[in-house]
Design a protein around this nucleic acid. Structure first.
Length: 530
RNA sequence: GGGCCGGUAGCUUAGUCAGGCAGAGCGAUGGACUCUUAAUCCAUCGGCCGAGGGUUCAAAUCCCUUCCGGCCCGCCA
């Protein structure tokens, strides 16, 4: 069999067969928090973009913010007062926080910042500006003139009859400001205006430039024509027979005289067990939230490793750590080749810094240090990691901090207790004797490494070892009479330090805690009487 | 009812376009490191490729049928 190609290469090769000049378009409506489900569209497009460029075609990547669409309803995250804005274009509605130019900008801004961090740099268009500047006027004229032909295509392809009063153009009522209620009663192609009657009682005339927009099924092919789009990813909702890609394909050919773009159909990202991600149901992890938690490469990796037509199950809890691990492992391996190499390349976001500290380790280090960055740096240094890039370590530690707060499952969390935990009462005499002996040795030793601690604990089971001798002495038994199970000793350590029976790998866990503190804590625990 | 996409190891999946010994990661198991304890390394186990039929020297791959899951066909992306 031939060498395996990454899906983005397959897309690129197909594109190259169609021509050597390309424009890849993406479009998302910023009607709510733009989530990682939406992100798939842009990241998928970016993969195709990078590959087509690599194959040598002149290519442009654009992102269209569909901010001229109406607000559909008062979403759960909106105050009731937004009821009056339902039906108005989201570029014309006030921002929920009061600080952005519009409702649309409020959600667009964090998304565009996210793109930047993901290493994705499309040329950004805003639909309201294109409409207002008159870029759509020719398309609007054509669509109004050929209204019956479009209606026929819609009927033939989707099987639905359009209503007699249907128009491809939705005017904005000058009175109630809504874009989805007014009925078109006529138009003047020379004056470039459209007449309407609105159920609110108002009737009037609006300019084609900015006075309204084309209905979605016509708007999309009009954009293909206007921006000369050759490749476009879209969600599977558009892809079924009779859907908007099907109707768009015929409309763009027969009405606008242009070839439709090469489709890239992608599946949804499912959030854990909660089902598909969707802004309207509130099942959402926003991109900004995700970027608080993981490096951008990991998010790209999530999407690059899976073919677009396959759904992705995403869980920001424990499984996210596995994902991060997998990525780090791959990234650290200089010998990756073939498909994995491709995936890795495509996951790269430019200008992101790296540290050699695994995310998982940092979750422990961070918790040991109670989030104190100076302490974190000390521990990191003692553990032998590269500390030259403090900025990266700071970023990683911020990610870990957010993850622990937002998504970490309880068992991943622990805290070094300031006071001796009361669970210490459950320890056996042997365990207490062990802790006492351990305390003495720690106190008498110089600085101990993770390995030292590890070996030390295991030495407890060896008759004749320093630790073993001290234990038998405390218990008043003969040296060869005592059998020690290291497992129990580890439990004793976790119990007296964390108040729980297990914890992170003991050696480097202990080595990240202050030595005097440990000596004192173990000594206290050994004599603890409730 | 019509259609689209998926179904491959316990889990996540590559491979399907272009037929040629079914691959990987995680997990599990065993081992190594004086060492079961959220680390590392090595090894092993694990598959009726959803099911049935057809084409072929040869099928996870192509064709037909069928089951399961998700979604679309509401000009509400």
């Amino acid at each position: 069999m031939a060498e395996i190609k990454h899906w983005a290469e397959v897309i690129a090769d197909e594109a190259l067969e169609n021509g050597t000049k390309h424009r890849i378009s993406t479009g998302i409506t910023p009607s709510g928090h733009i989530h990682i489900g939406n992100m798939r569209e842009v990241v998928t497009a970016d993969a195709a973009y990078r590959m087509i460029v690599e194959r040598g075609a002149e290519t442009e990547f654009i992102y269209m913010a569909d901010n001229f669409d109406p607000l559909r309803k008062v979403y759960p995250f909106l105050p009731e007062s937004y009821a009056e804005h339902v039906g108005k274009p989201i570029s014309e509605i006030p921002c929920p926080c009061g600080e952005c130019e519009s409702y649309a900008e409020h959600f667009l801004k964090p998304f565009l910042e996210g793109l930047e961090r993901l290493g994705i740099h499309p040329k950004v268009y805003r639909a309201d500006q294109l409409y207002k500047s008159g870029s759509f006027v020719e398309a609007i004229k054509t669509a109004l003139i050929k209204r019956d032909d479009i209606a026929k295509i819609l009927k033939e392809v989707s099987g639905k009859d359009v209503l007699p009063e249907w128009s491809p153009f939705n005017p904005i009522c000058q009175e109630c400001k809504k874009i989805n209620t007014a009925v078109v009663t006529g138009f003047d192609a020379d004056a470039e205006t459209v007449d309407y009657e609105c159920p609110c009682g108002h009737s009037g005339t609006v300019p084609m430039a900015g006075g309204g927009k084309l209905t979605w099924r016509v708007d999309w092919p009009a954009k293909w024509k206007m921006l000369d789009v050759t490749v476009e990813p879209f969600g599977k909702d558009h892809a079924s027979r009779g859907g908007s890609y099907d109707t768009g394909k015929r409309i763009v050919r027969e009405i606008f005289d242009h070839e439709p773009p090469q489709p890239i159909v992608y599946e949804w990202i499912m959030l854990g067990k909660k089902g598909a991600m969707s802004s309207s149901t509130g099942v959402v992890v926003s991109i900004s939230d995700m970027l608080k938690v993981v490096p951008p490469e990991v998010l790209r990796y999530l999407i690059m490793r899976t073919k677009p037509e396959k759904h992705i199950k995403f869980d920001p809890g424990q499984p996210l750590l596995t994902l991060v691990d997998e990525y780090e492992r791959l990234n650290a391996n200089p010998e990756v080749e073939g498909l994995n190499k491709r995936v890795l390349e495509l996951s790269h976001a430019k200008g992101i810094c790296h540290t050699d500290i695994p995310f998982k380790h940092m979750t422990t280090i961070f918790q040991v240090a109670h989030g104190d960055f100076e302490k974190i740096m000390k521990i990191v240094e003692r553990a032998g990691y590269d500390t030259t890039n403090e900025k990266c370590i700071r970023e990683l530690s911020a990610n870990v901090s957010n993850w622990l707060e937002m998504y970490a499952p309880p068992f991943a969390k622990f805290s070094v207790k300031d006071e001796l935990p009361e669970q210490t009462a459950t320890l056996s005499d042997v365990q207490k004797a062990f802790l006492g002996a351990l305390s003495e040795i720690i106190e008498a030793s110089g600085e101990l490494t993770g390995e030292d601690y590890h070996n030390l604990v295991y030495s407890s089971k060896e008759a004749g070892s320093d630790l073993h001798l001290k234990i038998v002495e405390k218990l008043g038994v003969a040296d060869d009479e005592l059998e020690i199970n290291p497992k129990e000793m580890f439990k004793a350590i976790y119990t007296s330090v964390l108040g729980q029976q297990s914890g992170p790998k003991a050696g480097w866990f202990l080595s990240s805690i202050d030595q005097d503190f440990l000596a004192k804590r173990f000594s206290e625990a050994s004599t603890y009487r409730p």
